Amino acid sequence: MLKPVDDGPAIVACNTCRHSKDARENGDGQRGGAQLVEQLRQVQASHPRYAGIAVQEMACLFACADFCTVHLRAPGRVGYVLGRFDPDEQAATAILDYAVHYAASEHGRVPFGQWPQGVKGHFITRTPPPGFVAE
């Protein structure tokens, strides 16, 4: 049931997420999560600043009410689940831009002034890394 992946900074995107609150798929029958994964990979490939952030995917993050969700994680850092994104290039760019700041942070806390506009209002939960809780 578990598949090994690199343990560095990563965006784990739900590839089965709904397209939107009201639709499971787009007009072509593609789920929003699969579309977001495609956009994340395209944006990541477009600029070397994103090279240190892995784009990983898995089925169902169990955040179905919040469609197009991603889990941002890195060793020794607080993790975050974000959702309610449109599965487009703009959202993928905002997620990757935030992930760059996140990966450079000491404990996963990015100062609010560095947050891209496109991630504001999209945070669902934060998760402590194994062996820690956040203060």
Rank of each mutant, 00 (worst) to 15 (best):
V55G: 00
L36R: 05
A104Q: 12
Y80T: 03
A103G: 02
H107I: 14
R84D: 04
V43R: 02
H101L: 13
Q44D: 09
A92V: 13
C17V: 11
H19N: 01
Q39G: 00
P87F: 01
D22P: 15
L96M: 14
H71Y: 07
R49D: 15
F85D: 02
V78N: 11
H101A: 08
I95F: 05
R73A: 03
C64Y: 05
K21E: 08
K21D: 09
A54V: 02
S105I: 08
H47D: 10
K21W: 06
E25S: 15
T69V: 10
Q90N: 14
F62R: 15
V43C: 12
P75W: 06
E25H: 11
C68H: 05
D66S: 14
G108D: 07
F85Y: 13
N26G: 15
S46Q: 11
A94P: 15
R84S: 12
S46R: 08
P87H: 02
A103F: 00
Y102C: 02
F62H: 15
G33M: 02
A51M: 09
L61M: 12
R24V: 05
G76A: 00
V78K: 05
D97K: 15
H107P: 11
Y98T: 07
R73N: 10
C68E: 04
V81G: 05
L40W: 02
A74R: 01
A23R: 11
V100H: 06
G27T: 08
M58G: 14
R31H: 14
G83S: 06
L40R: 04
T69Y: 00
I53C: 01
G76M: 00
E25V: 15
Y50M: 04
V70S: 05
T69M: 07
D86G: 07
A54H: 00
M58H: 12
G27V: 06
E25P: 09
A54R: 04
V55K: 00
Q42M: 02
E57L: 03
C60P: 02
V100A: 05
I95Q: 03
V81A: 02
H19A: 01
G76P: 00
C17H: 03
R77N: 05
A34W: 14
G76I: 00
D97G: 15
H101K: 13
R24T: 10
N26D: 12
R109P: 12
S105R: 06
D22Y: 15
D22I: 15
I53P: 00
G108Y: 03
A99E: 03
Q35V: 10
V81I: 07
Q44P: 06
A45I: 09
F85G: 04
V37R: 02
H19G: 03
R109M: 15
H101D: 11
S46P: 06
H107C: 13
I95T: 03
E106S: 15
S46C: 10
A34H: 09
Q30I: 13
H71L: 14
E106D: 07
I53T: 00
V37M: 01
E89R: 10
A92N: 11
D88W: 14
Y80M: 04
A23G: 13
S46G: 11
F85M: 10
H107Y: 13
D28F: 04
Y102I: 02
F67V: 03
C60E: 05
A91T: 04
I95L: 03
R84Y: 14
R49I: 07
T93V: 03
